[in-house]
Write a protein that binds this DNA or RNA. Structure first.
Length: 425
DNA sequence: TCTGGGGTCCTAGGACCC
DNA sequence: TCTGGGGTCCTAGGACCC
């Protein structure tokens, strides 16, 4: 029985979020910057139309943005995360199976939808937009890769009005031919370049290649893409949350950092975030990795980068233990007289908190009876009264290394003090 | 002055085991 | 002149994704 997968994708998601509480920005060019106001990472259609490039450094296109009177925002993940949850909430309410793929995308299984997938998708799109203000596009295909491809087509062709069902198309090959090879999901810039040299210019050309050749040159991942384009599902569909296998928290600094004390503070702060994510998915970590590096864009300056692995005797989710491990790693690899740009932590060797083998090392003092209730209390307070209501002294107070966010919009939906105010007369 | 952050999967090669 | 065969685990690096 052939499947019908839908890919629901929010249009210009971060830019659309900035408009949610600023309706006067509709029809105006809007861009959103990465952390530290570094690069342009989201653009409204109007910003794309005036030629603002994706991914380029903000300081390089400041003049252009000003000339076109583009509205510029620092990224506001509190807002985007919350609006994402609302969009996903609508999808899970109406679709039988939903796989949340990223902050702005989800797959849904629309096989055997009464009334047909296309009609259902149009209704779904209208509901998401009415309830959240976020515009979405929906592509439907017999595999995830083809649903992605259909989604791109839905976005680019006004006649689709935001929804395109490849399984109901009279000429699916034409849609494949229209899709450039580099725009196929799973084919990145490297493979695209190689393929173009061989005259493989679009999804249709690729689909008709020999499978053993593709497997040899592009490993089984390339083979999966090939088969998916032929309509054979190779990528699994996971409704429900999937636990991460690694958790990373890292940031570039707002200014160059040379002092060990600042690096230790930042490390504690990042580990606090990583450990929160770890507990949220109810895992424990048995391995910590810390890393730091100088600014690789500064070609004239002395460069240094290093990483330190720290195996833990007992897998844990206890923030102070994880902070101590990470800081010991930083002390090991720190060198004086370098201007550091970034550091970070990674947790790996993750296992479910319950349902793993215990050993005698799990006893005190490695695992004290008070540790778990302490972390539960900290998490509960921070959930109820806001992030960092309770925090660890090791992460400091107002370190000047913290990131730059000079054009941040209010956290309209997650912080009481920043709620939208409306005048009624 | 100013260039993001967080993931996954695959393969090759080294270390180590019997 | 001559130096096995078969495994596992780990890490680094490449490629891709949002």
């Amino acid at each position: 029985m052939p499947k019908s997968y839908a890919l629901i994708d929010c249009n210009n998601f971060y830019a659309s979020c900035e408009r949610a509480f600023r309706p006067e920005l509709k029809g105006r060019p809007v861009v959103v910057l990465s952390n530290n106001d570094g690069c342009i990472i989201a653009r409204s259609n109007e910003a794309k139309a005036v030629g603002v490039p994706m991914g380029s450094p903000y300081y390089k296109c400041r003049g252009q943005l000003k000339r076109h009177r583009v509205e510029v925002f620092s990224s506001n993940y509190a807002l985007y995360g919350d609006l994402s949850a609302r969009v996903m909430g609508v999808l899970t309410r109406f679709c039988p199976g939903v796989e949340i793929y990223s902050i702005d995308e989800a797959f849904a299984d629309l096989t055997n939808m009464p009334g047909g997938a296309d009609a259902f998708a149009r209704q779904l799109k209208a509901t998401v937009e009415t309830w959240t203000t976020i515009p979405v596009s929906i592509g439907i295909g017999p595999t995830k890769t083809l649903a992605k491809l259909a989604n791109r087509f839905a976005k680019k062709h006004p006649r689709c009005r935001g929804v395109f069902d490849l399984t109901a198309s009279p000429a699916p090959d034409l849609i494949l031919k229209w899709t450039e090879i580099g725009d196929v999901w799973g084919i990145g810039p490297r493979h695209a370049k190689r393929l173009r040299k061989l005259g493989v210019n679009n999804a249709l050309d690729f689909r008709d290649l020999r499978r053993d050749w593709v497997q040899k040159k592009m490993t089984v991942t390339g083979l999966h893409t090939l088969l998916e384009l032929r309509g054979m599902p190779c990528l699994g569909f996971a409704s429900g949350p999937v636990s991460k296998k690694t958790i990373v928290s890292s940031r570039s600094f707002g200014r160059p950092v040379t002092r060990l004390e600042d690096l230790l503070e930042a490390t504690a702060q990042y580990m606090t975030r990583a450990a929160e994510k770890l507990r949220r998915q109810e895992s424990v970590a048995s391995h910590v990795l810390v890393f730091l590096h100088t600014n690789t864009f500064k070609l004239g300056e002395p460069q240094y980068s290093n990483a330190a692995p720290i195996p833990l005797p007992v897998a844990t989710q206890h923030t102070p233990t994880l902070i101590r491990a990470a800081q010991s790693g930083i002390e090991r690899i720190y060198k004086e007289d370098y201007a550091f740009k970034k550091c970070g932590v990674m947790l790996s060797g993750l296992e479910p908190k319950n349902g793993r083998w215990l050993n005698f090392l799990d006893l005190p003092p490695n695992n004290r009876p008070g540790d778990a209730p302490l972390m539960q209390t900290v998490d509960a307070c921070n959930t109820r009264w806001g992030r960092d209501t309770l925090k660890f002294g090791a992460s400091g107070n107002d370190g000047t290394w913290r990131m730059k966010r000079e054009m941040c919009s209010p956290r309209y939906t997650t912080v009481w003090e920043e709620l939208l105010e409306v005048m009624a007369e």
